[in-house]
Write a protein that binds this DNA or RNA. Structure first.
Lengths: 214, 214
DNA sequence: AATTCGATAATTTTCGAAAATCATGGTTGC
DNA sequence: GCAACCATGATTTTCGAAAATTATCGAATT
């Protein structure tokens, strides 16, 4: 793996996880020290992230972490529902036994991690992502999967602060995931789509309540 | 505008227009001579294009123009229908007088150019793109507009060879554009969506017939 | 004849410095 | 007092060369 790729992975992770404040400038000298590399690989990574809308660039004024706003979150959520319901529909239509098995496995792994008291939050997030990706993986559309990844990263930036703030978590998220998996395995397209939609809308409500309507 | 931005614009245009053969390697020495700049701005542009799926990269083996295949075209077309019908619906719902005017203007400009005998094909393509963007511009979703631009570029790579091959062009594309604009201005969402869908499906048929099913 | 090996060439990747541009703070003139 | 202006420092952008890796070609070997 080249330095530029490492820079891309590290920067992306740190931005999505909120290590840099939204809208804060990403100065090359700082990044160079933080990640222990020269300017070239960092600039390449920043250009890729710019194309993914995680960072913004202004000519001769460098890069910044993309700003967050309630409007952008609502937009990303709406796009996500559009893309993921379609991808889920296709996945249910095309998925074979191996796909079903991978969904079961991803759900199992997610529950296993969620059940641990000594929660490694990082691993939990990875498995949550993996479960949602497994649901769509059989859709046979590289474009829809690409959009899913983009939107997942974009919304993750909003979800994480809401999770750590973790108010009165009345929801049984585990049950929601289970119900989606059941509907998927039963090939009940309509139900699965409805459950997925509700799942996201509930998450959205949680996040909205924790955000100032900037 | 910085050199890296110029490199991005030039490279993107040349790739979309097919100046480089699909799957051909993009060697830095060649690009450096072609565009008259050093490696740094070129690599930055290539990284952005990689994030847009117009070029692929392999570690230590450089960049290539993305390969084309019938499967990828079908995928992009399907994603396009999903994204654009939704964006069109939203645009009709939210668009104001200024938006209507911009649609009329874009259609007028497109027809004006299409009517010229001394066709500047480049300008025609620009206006065609502008018309389709104008239809969606009022959707108030940056994400959907972003996806539209991505998918437009991806499918343009297939459309252009089909156009220059220009077999028996039985379609009256001008009439199709006019009908879409009429439906949009009449705020007839269902009809507009149907016409847009038909428009793309017809284009797809033309392209399919001109492509070997690789 | 086919294959492995090694040397050479070609190419990508990375760095460090130079060039270009932007931001800051103090100074001058009104 | 205050705005315009210029020097200075900070930052981005670009280049050219060095480092690292891959591809190529021919000779030696089986």
């Amino acid at each position: 793996m080249t330095l530029a790729e490492k820079a891309y992975v590290s920067l992306r992770k740190d931005i999505v996880e909120g290590c840099f404040a939204p809208d804060s400038p990403l100065r090359l000298a700082d990044l160079s020290e933080r990640y222990g590399m020269g300017f070239s690989p960092l600039r390449e990574a920043l250009n890729r992230l710019q194309a993914e809308r995680l960072v913004t660039a202004e000519s001769l004024r460098g890069f910044r972490v993309s700003a967050r706003s309630l409007a952008e979150f609502e937009d990303a959520l709406h796009a996500r529902l559009l893309v993921e319901t379609e991808a889920l529909r296709l996945s249910i239509a095309h998925g074979d036994d191996a796909w079903e098995a991978s969904v079961v496995a991803a759900l199992y792994a997610l529950r296993r991690q969620a059940g641990r008291a000594d929660g490694d939050v990082d691993e939990l997030k990875t498995r949550h992502h993996a479960f949602h990706r497994a649901l769509l993986a059989a859709c046979r559309s590289d474009w829809l999967l690409d959009f899913f990844e983009r939107l997942y990263a974009a919304t993750e930036r909003y979800r994480i602060p809401a999770l750590t703030a973790a108010g009165p978590q009345k929801r049984d998220i585990d049950a929601e995931h289970g119900a989606i998996a059941d509907a998927v395995l039963a090939r009940d397209t309509e139900l699965a789509e409805q459950l997925l939609r509700d799942h996201y809308l509930r998450t959205a409500t949680t996040i909205r309540s924790g955000m100032s309507p900037a």
